[in-house]
Design a protein around this nucleic acid. Sequence first.
DNA 1: ACTGCAAGCAAGCACCTGCTTGCCTCCTGG
DNA 2: CCAGGAGGCAAGCAGGTGCTTGCTTGCAGT
Lengths: 226, 226
Amino acid sequence: MSRRLVKRGNTGSGVGRSAESAPSEIRQQILKTAIRLFAQKGFRGTTTREIALAAGVNEVTIFRHFASKQELYSAILEVKSTEAGLTEWLVDLAQFEQRRDDEGLFLFTASNILAHYKRDADFLSLKLYSSLEGHELAQKYREMQICPLFRFLRNYIVTRQREGAFNQCDPDIAVQAFLGSVYNHAVCLHFSEVDFIKLNQEETAKEFTDFFLRSMRPAPGRKRST
Amino acid sequence: MSRRLVKRGNTGSGVGRSAESAPSEIRQQILKTAIRLFAQKGFRGTTTREIALAAGVNEVTIFRHFASKQELYSAILEVKSTEAGLTEWLVDLAQFEQRRDDEGLFLFTASNILAHYKRDADFLSLKLYSSLEGHELAQKYREMQICPLFRFLRNYIVTRQREGAFNQCDPDIAVQAFLGSVYNHAVCLHFSEVDFIKLNQEETAKEFTDFFLRSMRPAPGRKRST
DNA sequence: ACTGCAAGCAAGCACCTGCTTGCCTCCTGG
DNA sequence: CCAGGAGGCAAGCAGGTGCTTGCTTGCAGT
């Protein structure tokens, strides 16, 4: 009963240890491995023994860092829902907004969404599992990442509509249509469910953007005007 | 060792039995219950005891009908991937096609997709779980249901482009954008992740359709320029 | 009445899985 | 040099879980 439950925080007292072992490096290693495995097989489908084996630590060590498997999962949710995600480039979007660069703004958005989910593929699985298994990650992520982006885009569209640069239409529908098509494509790519679109990531983003803007613009780009 | 493994087919010899017990009614009951539970908690998250209890049968009975839990799951996939799905209204779409009724065709599509996934909500979960857990349902469903629909729409778009009624653009992207936005919305609804769009199902379908067609039509404002 | 199928029921086996305990080892800081 | 923190290792417990076995019961058709 002497030293149950380490609780990472206080380990930060000394940086030391040897060369390769930073203070809470093992905790990070466990987290990282657990993220990968939970993403692959879901919460219920992953055993703590598996995590330990894959992380190269003893199973007991896991329970010394996390009170339970559930708490390990919660720690992951904490990490994943707070770490840099979609919102980190809201500031970049603001620049496009100032320049009224419609193409740039939506292309940047689409492109980054595709890149984001490709880079952090585990996150997509994790999010889907959490939706299905009824955990809170999806909702938290939605509130902290999706909603701000959604509101920004919606806001931009409304502005452009007032300026007469965009068609009058339900801005919610427009945003939903744009994000939906891009996001859905990202999911399809994730599951290797796509053989329709042969384009690479950048080209795809460009096509979706063009398609979207063609719907928003009062005067469609007449490419063949005799 | 006398009668292990019943294998439904041959039970259909006589219709008889009593009033409430049709030949393979119990098998159906098991399947139906299993579908619901697998959809709620995934394959790994559902126990055979649970299924038996919920179906009102003895656990042993399950294994008399299905060699293993895995085979029960396979039977479900069989049912779900062959039963009436998106393709059942391809014939209706053909009528819209003959009339060149763009609005009707895409509205019908969007509307039915939303209705389909709302009516058979379990299927959506089942499909997502199967994608994540690496089963074959998603792929099978894709080949048998999504692809035909995709090809039909793609084909229609190409035709209308040739006729000059639709803009020149990558038809794959167009279909992907349309289906993606609608499908994504269905998923959002499924997980109660939507508070952006207040419209009901019909209105939403209509809005997505309008949005899509506005991008496809050469002359957005004036419908009859001739 | 006899036969045979289908389902129920009680029990249980073998393995898995989250989690615990006790003890030993290595490293570091004072 | 020593105290103490952090991890390894071996063992195991309690409950769950897929699946089996042996038996009984009820309902048909001949």
